[in-house]
Design a protein around this nucleic acid. Structure first.
Length: 283
DNA sequence: AATTCTTCCAACCGCCAAGTT
DNA sequence: AAACTTGGCGGTTGGAAGAAT
């Protein structure tokens, strides 16, 4: 049932790697280089699955792996990057030389998640997530300052929509989707407007390209319906804020908050907008 | 000293996207 | 265009080690 395994597991070693296996793998990769993981075990004479070899090399045997505890500076960076990117461990690891995504993920799960427990947003989410949407009183539905957490999903484009005057960003978005206009994005203005937040991230080509390639969708929204962690429609959120991941870059006139936790699919965004329009019309 | 509980992290798993045939 | 392969990712697990009883 389901997907076939990546390789025939019969007769393969599992569990912790022995010193001897490490030596074989290291020696083979030093000679032949990385890649071709599927065939590597056979060629190297290892009774391991290719995936397992890849993981062992990337997370443990690579010569540039940094050993030892996460420093205070690294921890601060992890927190900031997590705020920005969510659970995109490989992206976070990419900005911490010598650290692996697995290591950072483990560190986060064992240390940081504890420290950050009890956050207001999480608390608020938890108090409402179990309720049947039908049971939510109407005044709650109308509460556009309601804070909730959405599940991060990948999107294929980055949109950095800026509002010019009262122009609805949706106009720009639709045109961008139709290919009639570039996504409404001005790097210079983006940096100007968000300089306080981004200052600590060494703004530069590298960072900007990271952002642009990171699937992070920034939404400057004027009314958008989102789903909660359970994938159910939640109450509407209205915001004049600009977000980078979870980070609010501008104060909203109505102090409303929409947390996208990193990303929304463009298709979902469009359907949210449609449903939001219907909702507004029905009021 | 023995047992139970908790923490930590290496390794595994399934899914996905990109590349190839 | 469809099927298949491959590499990469994030979530989860299991067991070793340490702490508590």
């Amino acid at each position: 049932m389901g997907r076939s395994p990546c390789c025939a597991k019969v007769g393969l070693n599992r569990g912790p790697w022995s010193v001897h296996e490490d030596q074989i793998l290291t020696s083979y990769i030093k000679t032949h280089g990385e890649g071709k993981w599927r065939n590597l075990p056979q060629k190297a004479g290892l009774r391991r699955c290719g995936k397992s070899c890849r993981l062992r090399w990337l997370n443990y045997l690579r010569p540039d792996i940094k050993r030892g505890n996460i420093s205070k500076e690294e921890e601060e960076l992890i927190i900031r990057l997590h705020k920005l990117l969510g659970n995109r461990w490989s992206l976070i690891a990419g900005r911490l030389p010598g650290r692996t995504d697995n290591e950072i993920k483990n560190y986060w799960n064992t240390n940081m998640s504890k420290k950050l427990q009890g956050k207001k947003a999480q608390k608020q989410f938890n108090t409402t997530k179990d309720k049947n949407p039908e049971e939510v009183p109407q005044e709650k539905k109308l509460d556009r300052t309601h804070v909730f957490q959405t599940r991060a999903v990948r999107c294929t484009k980055v949109i950095l929509p800026f509002q010019e005057g009262n122009q609805m960003y949706t106009n720009n978005l639709e045109l961008a989707l139709d290919g009639k206009r570039s996504p409404p994005f001005s790097p210079q203005r983006f940096m100007d407007e968000s300089s306080n937040f981004l200052m600590d991230f060494e703004i530069g080509e590298l960072f900007m390209s990271d952002v642009l390639n990171s699937d992070v969708l920034q939404v400057h929204c004027d009314g958008i319906q989102a789903t909660d962690n359970e994938g159910e429609n939640n109450s509407s959120a209205c915001s004049d804020n600009l977000f980078l991941g979870n980070e609010m870059l501008q104060d909203s006139p109505n102090k409303a908050l929409f947390e996208s936790n990193g990303a929304l699919e463009l298709q979902k965004l469009c359907s949210f907008l449609d449903s939001e329009d219907e909702w507004i019309e029905s009021q």
